[in-house]
Design a protein around this nucleic acid. Structure first.
Lengths: 340, 340
DNA sequence: TTGTAGGCGTTATCAG
DNA sequence: CTGATAACGCCTACAA
């Protein structure tokens, strides 16, 4: 391995001068600066990260904690974090909690010592615990807000409003809400917004796992409740609703309209393409790493969202025109079912 | 910050003893060992990673380079890497090349100095370049093989065989292959296998981008070629094929059968559910981090794959029964289209 | 078994 | 402007 010592020797200067030259600090003659640069170049010198970290106290890496890397929502945020970190010359250390709240503190501590700052995406832990963590060093939240901790979240209330306005404009008066996990910050936001906007007009179907399966489960409830439109916690759930409604013989969007949240890649690829509230995931990731910079207080950035209307929503059909859902649904592994 | 020095002082022993005690090295009296442990515990001592790295030369982190974190294939591998690293007490530093071959070397060098080992997933760079990189330190490949470099890949040939056998058993004789990117190692594997197995009986549709869009494009070609079954480079492509065939009014699996590769999550959620070759992605990630251990030579592990038959494949229909594809396809944003 | 001391590669402080 | 030199926190011969 080639050290700064080697470079200094090759350039015929002292260690100190070499160091200053390379970190283009002031007080270095132009000639020396160049000598050193040349020597470093030709020797292929690369500063030792650990040594640098030891003296400066800065590691040049940011940490990222997500519940599940395989979830497209978090993957998108991770891409943003990664991209911004790279642009600013930092590396990113990721940790996946596997959706397990109880490991969050452990994961965070393990990472904390190795990074300059920590981006916590959708942490499930309590606001208090979050406060403690944040007091230990620079932390930024994504898709979660907590007092005293910088965060970048989304204007969920506005997203709900856009979705509801859209549905109302199409004539839907019986719209159901498929909730996300209890205790989830972003579900609370959606609920608060929707009840403020629609009040009792909204059929609350309850809380579901934020997965395809959760949507399947919710779809039957929506049907039983006589909903003509369904607003879902996220796209994965919406996809599950779509699949189940289809299996039960209800036409989308003719018989019922479905709206998702997030605008994950799959939303636009599915048939019918999903109407959903697009959320700037990657941008959130990028901004979060910028919030890690020591700048002053704890800003709460709220990114704008936008309803993208695709094919899963349409004007309400008169009740008489709606097919009645099948009560028996064929096994999904049976090829016969899936003909369309 | 609490250092080893503090712990030693609190325990009433020297630095060296404290160090030995904590790394449970031999030659430490039981009492001292316990004293130190207690002190460390109560002070909340955590060894400084950089300092440790500086002396030991080992960072306790593994690097992971993937083309695209948002691609479910790579996300699954990343989860495996992450899980295994965590189990073995290491952290993972990820880098996303954004599918850009030209940045691979740069990304790799930047990471190399900060990690004990590097997992390269589906690198696009040349075998030679790969060899150079690997010579610089411990490297393991995933979904790619190169002489002299440890790797874990998949038994692609067997996957192709299983898919082709399945299709043949269903009576398909006109099966088309939708290829992946030129120069891709795994596409080369598929091609080699399929031509060895089916020879001219297989209609080679050419190379396509390994995305939904690539599949859309390929679908029309498959129709024009009169294929009754389509084998795709991966699931994303297969999903594109499905969507396009559907849009053109051809029934799946009645009119044409479609097979994917990878068994990404979306494959089982879509309607009709996709028949595909399941590949142990997470396991590959895990095994790759195990290959990073200094053990001897350069093993090439080849993981078994398995065809999972779902609803996108069925026996060939007599030609007379097949609908003729639409020649005009409605805009995908038109809700009318997507009724099913 | 224990402690002392040197060194890992850098940066930063201080005299020159 | 430059060069010794002292940290940074930890590990590990080596000596006691």
């Amino acid at each position: 391995m080639v050290t700064l010592r080697d470079v200094a020797r090759a350039a015929g200067v002292s260690l100190a001068t070499a160091s200053r030259a390379l970190s283009d600090a002031p007080h270095v003659s132009a000639t020396n600066r160049e000598q050193v640069a040349r020597a470093a170049q030709s020797l292929g010198y690369r500063p030792h990260p650990a040594a640098r970290a030891l003296t400066t106290g800065s590691t040049g890496t940011v940490g990222l904690v997500v519940p599940d890397l395989a979830n497209p929502f978090f993957a998108a945020v991770a891409k943003g974090v990664q991209a911004r970190a790279r642009e600013t010359g930092r590396e990113v250390l990721v940790a996946d909690t596997d959706e397990d709240v109880t490991v969050e503190p452990d994961v965070i501590t393990r990472l904390a010592d190795r990074v300059d700052g920590l981006v916590l995406c959708s942490p499930r832990m309590s606001a208090d615990a979050l406060g403690d963590v944040a007091s230990g060093g620079r932390v930024a939240l994504v898709n979660r807000e907590a007092p005293g901790v910088p965060s970048v979240s989304f204007d969920i209330a506005d997203g709900v409003r856009q979705a509801l306005d859209h549905l109302r404009a199409l004539g839907h008066d019986a719209v159901a809400y498929v909730g996300g996990p209890r205790g989830s910050w972003s579900d609370a936001e959606r609920r608060a917004a929707s009840s403020a906007l629609a009040g009792d007009a909204l059929l609350d179907l309850g809380s579901f796992r934020p997965t395809h399966g959760g949507g399947v489960q919710a779809a039957d409830l929506a049907l039983a409740a006589g909903a003509t439109a369904v607003l879902c916690f996220n796209d994965l759930v919406a996809l599950g609703v779509l699949a189940r409604l289809h299996a039960r013989g209800v036409a989308i969007p003719d018989d019922v309209s479905v709206v998702g949240f997030d605008d994950v890649a799959a939303a636009s690829l599915v048939t019918p393409a999903l109407t959903t509230v697009a959320v700037p995931l990657a941008r959130a990731g990028r901004e979060a790493v910028d919030l890690l910079a020591p700048g002053g207080d704890a800003p709460h950035r709220r990114l704008p969202v936008e309803l993208v209307v695709r094919s899963s929503t349409a004007p309400v059909a008169p009740a008489a025109d709606r097919r009645t859902p099948r009560t028996t649904v064929p096994r999904s592994t049976d090829p016969e079912v899936v003909i369309r």
